[in-house]
Simulated assay, not measured.
Amino acid sequence: MLVQIQKFIDQFHTRLSQIISWFTLIMVLLTLLIVILRYGFNMGWIAMQESVMYLHAAVFMLGAAYTLQVDQHVRVDVFYRKFSERGKALTNLLGSLLLLMPVNIFILLISWEYVGNSWGLLEGSQEAGGLPLVFILKTFILLFAGSLSLQGIAEIIKSTLVLAAAGERK
């Protein structure tokens, strides 16, 4: 059952990453359009510029869990790369339990009211002509911590299974 949960979480984040990967192309095209309009035609829209920021936030915040899944997150790799599979699994398990999960729980708890207040106001941009969706932008904070916690659970399961298999081989 644990393997099924882990695989479901991994598949969810893989699909999510495939969707948000298109956001980077959209950001590039929007940025190109913004530059052409501004410098070629002396025109600009705040909403278009803000949409690039929203897309960037989505790519970063929603892509973090997939980055963890494929083991491409930032890590001090000086010692880790020399560890055995068991050592890596133990490091990942302890890191997930003692660092990743507490930080994500803290982010969820501390930002819940912040995001809730934004939704209560249906907060919009302070810029004239900006997007009226700041509450959506702030929601990415909760989605970030939630999806990273979910992937943390998958990583805990993976590490536990590696350690169990290593224990059986002894």
Rank of each mutant, 00 (worst) to 15 (best):
T139A: 11
G129H: 08
F83A: 06
L30Y: 12
M53H: 08
W119N: 10
L161Q: 15
L2W: 06
H13E: 06
W112I: 00
L131D: 08
L163K: 11
S111F: 14
S51D: 02
T139E: 06
Y39W: 11
A57N: 05
I153H: 00
V103R: 06
K88A: 01
L25W: 10
I26F: 11
V76G: 00
N104K: 03
G40I: 13
L133D: 06
G95T: 03
F83S: 03
L142E: 10
S21P: 00
G130I: 08
F23P: 10
L32W: 13
L90Y: 03
I157C: 05
L16I: 01
Q18A: 08
L133E: 07
A47D: 07
T14Y: 06
A164W: 09
S21Q: 14
Y54T: 12
A166P: 01
V28S: 06
Q6N: 07
L98C: 10
S51F: 12
I36Q: 09
G44R: 12
L30H: 12
K7F: 03
F83D: 06
G120H: 12
M101S: 06
T24C: 04
Q4L: 11
F83C: 03
M48T: 14
L137C: 05
Q11L: 10
V59I: 09
G124L: 10
R75K: 09
M27P: 14
G167T: 13
N92D: 15
A128F: 07
I157F: 02
S149F: 12
G95P: 05
I46T: 14
I156M: 07
G146T: 09
P132V: 06
V115A: 08
R15V: 11
I5F: 04
I19S: 02
E113I: 14
A65T: 00
T14N: 07
S149C: 12
Q4K: 15
L37C: 04
V78N: 05
F79Q: 12
F135E: 03
A145Y: 03
L2N: 14
L161P: 00
L163W: 03
M43K: 15
L93G: 01
I110Q: 05
K170T: 12
I136Q: 04
R86V: 05
V162P: 00
L97I: 00
G44A: 03
F83P: 06
M61F: 13
A164G: 00
F144R: 07
L133Y: 15
Q151E: 14
Q4A: 12
A166N: 10
R86K: 15
E113F: 11
L131K: 09
G63I: 11
I9K: 02
S17F: 10
N42R: 14
S149D: 04
G120K: 12
V134H: 08
M61T: 11
N42E: 10
Y114E: 05
F41P: 07
A164L: 10
A89K: 07
L93T: 01
V76S: 02
W119I: 10
Q151W: 01
I136R: 07
G44M: 02
L137M: 15
L37I: 03
V162W: 00
S84M: 04
D77Q: 03
G116R: 15
V74K: 08
